[in-house]
């Protein structure tokens, strides 16, 4: 039992600890230079996005703290902003984030079916993550590619004109590629 416990603890501390990598720090300096010197807060959103990318797609509390130090703001202010924007996630997400656009143009072209197919195949609902931590399913507003509706963004790539069958194939392929 104690062994399992330490394992969990280790895993926790690993995900929970956070510090910016060297590259990120250079990046942060670059970002800050874009704004007037007296207004480092402006860089906040971009640094939060940077932290999120570095921290497997979500912003943990230590990450918030690191960001707060970076922009010279209280943690609370950083949290306020981080919790406002839907693009920023304060909960752990899966290694593949599947965002399905479900607003008008895509809805008309069957994004509901896509969503349902994903939910069924993954066995989770919207805004949930699979138990193995592989997939997170998100419902998002317009991705700006309405002409390719229904649009789906998987991690950083955008796919359009999908139907439910193709969608499940895609998920399958992703799941297999991870296993290998």
């Amino acid at each position: 039992m104690s062994k399992a416990f330490t394992q969990i603890e280790q895993a926790l501390s690993k995900t929970q600890r956070f510090s910016f990598t060297k590259e990120s720090l250079i990046q942060i300096e670059k970002i800050k230079r874009k704004y007037p010197e007296s207004k480092p807060e402006s860089a906040l959103l971009e640094i939060l996005l940077l932290a999120q990318r570095q921290n497997e797609g979500w912003i943990s509390h230590p990450a918030l703290e690191a960001v707060a130090v970076g922009v010279n703001l209280p943690v609370m202010k950083v949290l306020e902003v981080a919790s406002f924007y839907p693009l920023l996630s304060l909960k752990p997400v899966g290694s593949h984030c599947v965002r399905i656009c479900t607003t008008t143009a895509c809805w008309l072209k069957g994004s509901t079916d896509l969503g349902r197919a994903c939910q069924k195949w993954l066995g989770i609902g919207w805004e949930e993550t699979t138990v193995d931590g592989m997939f997170t399913l998100k419902e998002v507003p317009c991705l700006g590619d309405c002409t390719k509706a229904p649009a789906v963004q998987i991690n950083e790539t955008l796919r359009g004109n999908l139907n439910a069958r193709e969608m499940t194939h895609l998920l399958q392929a992703l799941a297999e590629s991870v296993k290998k």
Binding site: A105, C142, G144
Partner: peptide, 10 residues
């Protein structure tokens, strides 16, 4: 903007 239907920007 992320207003549904506006794809011109992108």
């Amino acid at each position: 903007s992320n207003e549904p239907g506006s794809g011109t920007e992108k």
